[in-house]
């Protein structure tokens, strides 16, 4: 099973063990932005369509 920790979009938080942010580039019809959402490093990434191996 792959986990978020193995994904290119995962950034571990320095001060919170096991906790990280999933940071991804999004381009919608009006603007481009980076979005961030909290994820745990051991999250099951097998169902994630955006998973990209580091």
């Amino acid at each position: 099973m792959s986990t978020c920790a193995e994904c290119r979009s995962f950034f571990l938080r320095e001060d919170e063990p096991g906790q990280g942010d999933c940071v991804r580039r999004v381009v919608d019809p009006r603007q481009a932005f980076y979005q961030s959402k909290p994820v745990r490093e051991d999250n099951d990434a097998s169902g994630c369509e955006s998973f990209q191996k580091k």
């Binding site: 999004v26 919608d28 009006r30 603007q31 481009a32 932005f33 980076y34 979005q35 961030s36 959402k37 909290p38």
Partner: peptide
């Protein structure tokens, strides 16, 4: 506030939106 999606738009210098995505 701890868990919603946040974003930073290209070229912006100020941040913060009360929804989770720009639209």
């Amino acid at each position: 506030l701890d868990n919603k999606t946040i974003f930073i738009t290209d070229h912006s210098q100020l941040v913060g939106y009360f929804g989770s995505l720009p639209n």
